[in-house]
Design a protein around this nucleic acid. Structure first.
Lengths: 250, 250
DNA sequence: TGGGTTTCTCAGGGAAATCACAGGTTGCCG
DNA sequence: CGGCAACCTGTGATTTCCCTGAGAAACCCA
């Protein structure tokens, strides 16, 4: 299995790379074109190389020739069920980590069995931040022991641990809800960059969210209450443009 | 994927170029002729090569033979909807970034997923500066890891960061409103060049602006207050001709 | 099943940004 | 030097955008 490393791009975004410096490869398998499109775009934006397939047969063939570092696999495929695909996949690529996509009401224990091997899953409808974060985790852990990347984001005196979901500011622990956590992670993965409400909505909320755009404002307000409360503010509004996070002093 | 670079023309304008030195190619798709004309002119002025199409069929055909580096795509086309066009476009040109044009009130409805992949959008009515800036951003980021261009404009001791929207003069941070920011960006992208009020109005204000021409004077005055206040002035009036910006000492 | 938690809608208040208007100032030309 | 055109800028009306409290609905866990 490859030994992944990270590098930091000029924009300050951290990217996963393979040991030879080539981009990480991910295979996306889903029968709904809109889903593979959505995922392909988002994952390419991470700097990864993407190939997609719409059924089990295509998936197995792509896997053989593309030799991905990770696979995103819908459990419901038209031609064969997820388990058979997984089995055959493992014959060719024994160590490749798999991120399962499942329906919300799927049987929990069946999934639990599958993820025992270090795989992971997300339920539909998912948010892109969630998928990207899980994939990053899988790829990072599948790399050898020596991995230099850790899972902690740091901006000023604010830290966020993607593994333990722990958040601290100035050493004090802060409890965040799931949505607050995802929003903060997205902000911290793009420090000092203005993110529009539409961008935030597209990345942090699930793709079928049909609600009011002001949930973003609302959750920004929640975050401020927990993170900036009585301190030098780190979350800033750029009226008419969006929000950004940056270290307090500067 | 192309690896874009920048070069500086004799006029002092920074242009995006492809690695072989040939101009960037952009495909513009909109069914309103007045819009494609407006955009084509503005984008050609950037030194880019433009082709336009009025419907989805034409767009797909043009994309295949023209192989653009970026696409401007109206979401409302006569023959097919924007998403289908996008899907098929992606089959031929998997990595091409897309800038969507949408109606103002469609924003809330469903832009979901569009900006997810690193694509972007602007709402109608837009300003040309906005479109150009977003396109430059998309093209810049679509270049692979090694992208050498950054997002900071510099004129003398004045800097403007297009990502963080930060503006500084002599190291001091300066807060600008959205319109002030766009105006300054336009000036700084054309240093030492006289820009007429009509030009400024056409580029910085949206194309359906119906107000008094003296908004330009007004906003120049706002900018001076914030940027030139108590320092050697950088913004100069050329009576009867327009305005220009240049480094203070010279 | 029930209570606490989380997510989200709705709506009011308030602040900031945009712009029109008009009177003052400056520079240019005859 | 007078007068006019071009430009500058103070004031305030209007609009737009953002924030946040209150509460309903969904969710989770025991």
């Amino acid at each position: 299995m490859v030994d992944n490393m990270t590098t930091t791009s000029p924009q300050g975004r951290t990217e996963l790379l393979r040991p030879d410096g080539s981009p990480v490869r991910v295979l996306v398998v889903d029968d709904e074109m809109s889903i593979t499109e959505l995922l392909s775009m988002a994952l390419r934006y991470e700097g990864w190389q993407i190939r997609s397939a719409g059924d089990g047969q295509g998936a197995l063939q792509s896997a053989r020739e593309f030799r991905p570092d990770a696979v995103v696999l819908d459990m419901m495929l038209p031609d064969m069920d997820g388990l058979s695909v997984l089995g055959r996949l493992r014959r060719d690529l024994p160590d490749v980590p798999v991120l399962f996509l499942t329906a919300k009401d799927a049987v929990e224990d069946r999934i639990a069995g599958l993820t025992a091997g270090g795989d992971d899953y997300v339920t539909k409808p998912f948010s892109l931040e969630e998928v990207v974060a899980r994939l990053r985790g899988l790829i990072r852990r599948s790399g050898a022991a020596d991995r230099r990347s850790d899972s902690v984001l740091v901006v000023g005196d604010l830290t966020l641990d993607e593994d333990s979901h722990e958040v601290t500011r100035g050493g004090d622990g802060i409890h965040l809800t799931a949505t607050e956590f995802e929003l903060l992670r997205f902000l911290m993965r793009n420090p000092r960059r203005v993110l529009s409400k539409a961008q935030i909505l597209d990345r942090v909320w699930s793709y079928d969210f049909g609600g009011q755009a002001n949930v973003v404002e609302l959750y920004i307000s929640y975050l401020r209450r927990k993170i900036d409360a009585g301190r030098e503010p780190m979350i800033h509004t750029r009226r008419g443009a969006g929000y950004l996070i940056k270290p307090a002093v500067s």
